[in-house]
């Protein structure tokens, strides 16, 4: 069999999403953001909503997401993406509006906007990438940094007595009546990538079907911020992050399916 006999449309098992631009990702090698960006792109393509979708880019590592996804985007001030999304969705209620935010953006500086947009039940989608650290600014402590975890602003480890406990904001969000779907996923393995994509799809579908706000947390790594190789970072995440931030659906069809 010649190679040209193999390269045929019917044999294709994977292709890059048409929603992704040709611009190479600026994320560090091994970072989960690239995969998470791709999953959002694939879901937008498969749902056929490119012409109706408006994204909100945060401040942080994923600020340049608007260069990687070929859709209309508004960049937002740090933490304010849910308010920016609210403004857009209220004047364009038939458009599909989503935010893509990190943990510092969503769960520290933007906690108020996050809680209130969710509590109002804005019919938007929120994709929340939690890697327990401020990556863009060089590895400082985040609201989701684990107890004892070393960062550049907790160089001897997070001391919960003085620095507080990690914030499980996704569990908080799930308890708000305005929220329709909440899930926590990861992109560390092919199986988890598939589950994460399904969750992202459900979060977009609940908006499209006007059922309400869909919220997906993606527990991710930051090998450069964590000072670990990509493989070790993933191992560390599985051993330490997953027990604290357990994966799976939390709220489905407006009903809590997990005891919080």
């Amino acid at each position: 069999m010649e190679i040209n006999d193999i390269i045929k449309p019917e044999n294709q098992v994977y292709k890059s999403s048409s929603i992704l631009t040709d611009k190479p990702f600026s994320y560090c090698p091994g970072c989960g953001h690239g995969t998470a960006n791709r999953l959002v792109a694939e879901v937008i393509e498969e749902l056929g909503i490119q012409k109706d979708t408006i994204g909100i880019a945060p401040v942080g590592c994923s600020v340049l997401i608007y260069e990687f996804l070929d859709i209309d985007f508004s960049q937002a001030p740090h933490g304010r993406a849910p308010a920016v999304a609210t403004g857009i969705k209220r004047v364009l209620p038939d458009k599909i509006v989503f935010t893509y935010q990190g943990d510092g953006d969503l769960a520290a500086i933007g906690t108020s906007e996050t809680i209130h947009a969710c509590n109002r039940g804005e019919n938007i989608t929120i994709i929340f990438v939690n890697n327990g650290i401020y990556g863009m600014t060089g590895g400082q402590m985040a609201p989701t940094t684990l107890p004892g975890m070393k960062t550049s602003t907790s160089p001897f480890g997070r001391n919960v007595e003085t620095m507080g406990n990690p914030l499980k904001i996704t569990e908080l969000i799930a308890q708000l009546d305005g929220v329709h779907y909440v899930s926590r996923q990861s992109v560390n393995s092919p199986a988890n990538v598939r589950k994460a994509k399904k969750a992202i799809r459900l979060a977009f579908e609940s908006q499209i079907n006007k059922q309400g706000l869909g919220f997906v947390e993606i527990v991710s790594n930051c090998n450069s911020g964590w000072k670990l190789s990509p493989i070790k970072a993933n191992q560390w995440m599985e051993e330490n992050m997953f027990p604290y931030y357990p994966l799976g659906d939390i709220k489905v069809d407006g009903k809590l399916i997990k005891t919080l």
């Binding site: 508004s74 001030p77 304010r80 308010a83 999304a85 403004g87 857009i88 209220r90 364009l92 906007e113």
Partner: peptide, 16 residues
């Protein structure tokens, strides 16, 4: 919920 949110809703909607 705050002036911060209000002006960012303005920012979002103004972009449309």
């Amino acid at each position: 919920e705050s002036e911060l949110a209000a002006i960012n809703m303005v920012y979002g909607a103004a972009g449309t």
